[in-house]
């Protein structure tokens, strides 16, 4: 057990803070009945995840997480809420007692199972570092090993854009 003021100790504290931020954000996002608040929770959760990436020595991934998820995705959701104005007066019905107990039970079981799995498994230490997580390494991997995925993703994105347009355009008529 290293002391708190050492480098490892401080890193541990930072890790715990990041995990706490992620968890708190997640709880706010799922338990809030008001959408803007839930989105803020989601943003908080994603910031925590970005911190985890940074902690795992992937600064590029952390930056992308902040930029895309916290920056773009959450802001898009906020825009959607602003434009659609999904009846602020309507309150979604709460869960029944059985539902709450059941979901908590299942969640606890799942968490216990994963935790047990994580601690009992002998995870092999990575023999070689896959890459240093820098932009150069990521770009290199994208254009060599993962070139097929890289190309295919563009088709998926095109499909998503056309699909959104095709569906939303016909939705506008009906309104």
């Amino acid at each position: 057990m290293s002391s708190l003021v050492s480098v490892e100790g401080l890193a541990g504290v930072v890790f715990l803070v990041v995990v706490a931020v992620t968890l708190i954000g997640g709880v706010i996002a799922t338990s809030s009945t008001r959408l803007p608040r839930a989105v803020s929770g989601l943003a908080l959760c994603l910031i925590g995840i970005a911190g985890l990436y940074y902690f795992l020595n992937s600064p590029f991934l952390a930056a992308m997480e902040m930029l895309i998820y916290v920056g773009a995705v959450c802001v898009t959701i906020v825009f959607a809420i602003m434009l659609a104005d999904p009846g602020a007066d309507k309150k979604p019905g709460g869960m029944t007692a059985v539902g709450t107990a059941g979901s908590l039970g299942v969640g606890a079981l799942f968490a216990w199972g994963l935790a047990a799995l994580g601690t009992t498994t002998m995870w092999p230490a990575a023999a070689v570092k896959v890459n240093d997580g820098s932009v150069k390494a990521v770009g290199h991997a994208l254009l060599t090993t993962y070139s097929f995925v890289f190309e295919l993703i563009s088709v998926v994105l095109l499909l998503a854009i056309i699909g959104a347009l095709a569906l939303a355009r016909s939705g506008r008529d009906k309104a």
Binding site: V149, V155, A160, G163, L167
Partner: peptide, 24 residues
Amino acid sequence: LLSLFVALELSSFALYLLVPMRDD
């Protein structure tokens, strides 16, 4: 695994979009 996942998603996304394309 990664390319398998993305190819599977390509087909799934298209199916998600096909389902609501029906006259109401």
